[in-house]
Design a protein around this nucleic acid. Structure first.
Lengths: 196, 196, 196, 196
DNA sequence: AATTAATCGAGACGGTACGTCATGTCTTGAT
DNA sequence: ATCAAGACATGACGTACCGTCTCGATTAATT
């Protein structure tokens, strides 16, 4: 669903400039005060150009905050234990960072209202994360570490939820050894138990 | 910081009427469109009466949505496995329900900005939940089910996060057997592993 | 149709502050660049307060520009000739002046779109002007200067139109002797001929 | 200031298509909502082609609305009285009609801002109208109907203004006998008095 | 009984952000 | 150089919401 072949094509630099502006503003002032006008001004762009690309502020920020390189390469560490740590680290890198940390609660709230973007959040992030997870579990099955594949949504909820709760609900500081290492033992144990 | 002793005393019915109005509106239109004006109108109350009692919309909604009977009775089922299921069920009952489900993301976003109320959310809910958890773990220690007490924040993040992720991130439907029963096996296993 | 008896009454100073702000801005930057935001800022007022009082920018400016003291006292000079000059001077004083001169074309354009305010323009200005005119003509009849009363709309169009055309269509400079004196002889003659 | 000789010549049909589109839109939705984009779309033309021909929306609409055949043939009816009626009829035919009636207030507002096009409006319409008027007055002088020539701007303001006020300020319906016939007696009288 | 003072419903207030829309310019590839 | 299509910066508009405030009326506890 790209734009038509005719007419002036969309300027390439705008997307990048907007993403940069959004991330700067998120870090500086947080989600609520990261105004659409401020984004447009900082990016040197008209508001019309923004609303031509995204349907709302929430979509815009979501697009700017989700970087496609996350979850790109599935980590095959040779052991389920190592893979789980890798997945957790990836989840953390997607949920942590000054921008996402500021944006996520606001995004969750705003995307809940709009329906189409919520679906896109699923596509772009959750679906890929789940595929990821399936691969990790299947590798463990192949290695004989698991006898049967646990329910994927359950595992997904445990992994993603633990990281999210740590960062956004409990708002604990990230432990010195890293969040993934702190959570991995327990969650690895959970998967082992479920896959027995 | 209670009100003065002199003058007209606060009317009793207002709190209940407001809570009812908030819950109705949350269910009907969600958090964002559950306006303070709408709440006041529905409750037949002036906005001043609201802001005399709560400092912001977020506090108001939080107070209306959190029912104190949650987490009231610590479940002692005789086994760690049973207690974990009980804690999960309590967490679910606090995070689920048509109103909370609509309110939570918005609350998280708004409470992040304000500092004092965020602390109160911690007090009222997380601290009590954590105390709960400590009690459950200690009982398991006493029973000999655990050799040592796992890191409480880690366990807390896993339990709370799994429920939250299921309901608000993955937005899966609650499974027929109940969410607590679906999550309990894995999380019980996690605790066992951590407490070995 | 004033506001209800209950609730906070509208602040009195706002109307005056807004009128002042509008008139200043009209003189400084003209109608098009006399922004609603600029008006609100200059008057130290929120936009909501403006739109609570007036339905649109056009209504707002109209209210600020029309001063009720115009056309207040019908001039009885003793002769039709003198009265006509007086009416013309009043019309000019309503249509001239740095603010009205800048606002009028824009107002005419914007009020044409909206229907209710156009009616109010009629009520507040044209109707009173016409009543004025009728009185002048009746006095001339009583004096015997006219044998019969000319069609009022025709006379109205000639008097009002001549002043308007001079100022806004031909955009001639006001002659040294005054616009009323320049136009009075011909229009007096017209009325005499029509009333013969 | 015509376009260059080299390159693709301008397409002929565009002017006509645009004029048609403008007139349709003026009649359907009025001046303000007769958008440049809408004009281009309706005419099946790019916006660049419009701005290559006219400097602004106001100029464009003005060109589309003014038909050059107006004021083409000076009416010599043999009497001043008849000539005045003729001039009034011409003025009315220029200011009336569903399109002009909708466009005129908007044009007046927009042309006030821009300077060069305002001058062109003067050239194209007012100057010719005034030349017209001079001719009519001179004929009356030659016939002996007038002893001296009245101030032309005064007469111009009275004639043009009366018609404009009737149509756009008072917004009266055109009388059954025609607007020119309704206004002619008085304005003829005015000229006679001024030329005595 | 009169006074005092905090409350009540109603609703106006300043501030601030949103999303829409229009103008006039610019950029494609094609003619 | 022109064409249709359409993206672009600019900037105004009108709406909505929040948290505060102001009104006249009400309600107790204190004089």
């Amino acid at each position: 669903m790209t734009h038509n072949r005719r007419g002036r094509p969309r300027e390439q630099g705008i997307d990048a400039a907007v993403r940069a502006a959004v991330n700067e503003l998120l870090e500086e002032v947080g989600y609520q005060r990261c105004t659409v006008d401020a984004i447009a001004a900082r990016a040197g762009v008209g508001k019309a150009a923004l609303y031509r690309r995204w349907k709302s502020k929430a979509e815009l920020v979501f697009a700017a905050v989700v970087h496609d390189d996350t979850l790109a390469a599935p980590p095959d560490t040779g052991t389920l234990r190592g893979d789980v740590t890798g997945v957790l680290a990836d989840i953390q890198s997607a949920l942590d960072g000054p921008q996402v940390r500021n944006a996520l609660p606001g995004l969750l709230a705003d995307l809940r209202t709009e329906d189409a973007p919520a679906a896109r959040l699923g596509e772009l992030f959750l679906v890929r994360e789940r595929a990821y997870l399936v691969e990790v579990l299947d590798r463990a099955l192949a290695r004989g570490e698991l006898a049967r594949r646990p329910e994927v949504p359950v595992v997904h909820a445990m992994l993603l939820g633990s990281v999210f709760a740590w960062l956004h609900l409990l708002r604990e500081t990230v432990p010195p050894g890293g969040l993934a290492d702190a959570l991995a033992p327990g969650l690895y144990g959970a998967i082992i138990v479920l896959g027995r």
